[in-house]
């Protein structure tokens, strides 16, 4: 038997959020207040999903900000791995979404310990092989050292202990088709704000553009 659908349910990428999703995640926003949570409960779900009122619109905007930040962190966090299977990187998150980013990396590297340092809160969060999350008020380097001390060397992580930055830069440059250059589209895909993220501050994408102008001059 097919499940009966809410008539106002929006399908696809703009499907909006259910009451449950909103209540579960709204606290992640940096401007969260209990009043907003009370409002969510009073507004009907159909109105929330379709941004039917100003309040509903505001709530949806807050949720979008939260998930966009998490998505950007998944996209543009640049990580390193050591020979003992500790993957680490730096993020800069305004909202409380570090656990979502950690889970993303944990699914990709289930046998590794993931350490992410949040520049905004100056905390290092880790997720271990079992999926347990812990937080430390210590710099990233120290946490990585402490964790690595008790772990043995893994041969296939040992194999990839070389600098990859130049490799990525070469690959990135090689893929560019000058005839198709489209600055507007590029800006849409990597908005300026993304170049403020720790992984992108000195990123290949930015360097590549700058170099081109310098060469021209």
């Amino acid at each position: 038997m097919t499940k009966k659908r809410d008539p106002l349910e929006v399908i696809g990428c703009a499907k909006g959020y259910s009451h449950e999703e909103l209540i579960k995640n709204i606290h992640r926003h940096s401007r969260y207040s209990p009043e907003i949570e009370r409002q969510i409960i009073t507004i009907p779900e159909a109105i929330l999903r379709n941004s039917g009122t100003q309040m509903a619109k505001k709530i949806n905007k807050m949720m979008r900000e939260v998930f966009t930040e998490a998505y950007r962190a998944k996209q543009f966090t640049r990580t390193e791995i050591n020979n003992r299977g500790v993957l680490f990187g730096i993020v800069s998150l305004k909202h409380n979404v570090l656990d979502l980013v950690l889970v993303y990396f944990h699914e990709r590297w289930p046998q590794c310990v993931i350490c992410l340092y949040n520049e905004q809160t100056r905390e290092t969060w880790i997720i271990d092989e079992k999926g347990a999350i812990r937080q430390f008020h210590q710099p990233l380097k120290k946490v990585v050292e402490n964790i690595s001390r008790d772990r043995r060397i893994v041969p296939y992580f040992e194999d990839i202990q070389f600098s990859g930055e130049e490799i990525f830069e070469t690959l990135y440059k090689s893929q560019f088709i000058a005839e198709r250059e489209n600055k507007q589209y590029f800006k849409k895909m990597i908005p300026d704000c993304c170049f403020e993220l720790p992984g992108m501050k000195n990123g290949v994408e930015k360097r590549f553009r700058n170099k081109k102008i310098n060469e021209f001059l």
Binding site: Y172, F176, I177, Y185, F186, M189, I190, V204, E205, F208
Partner: peptide
Amino acid sequence: ICHSYTPDGR
């Protein structure tokens, strides 16, 4: 998830 884009936006 796309981790990078070339200057043509691809």
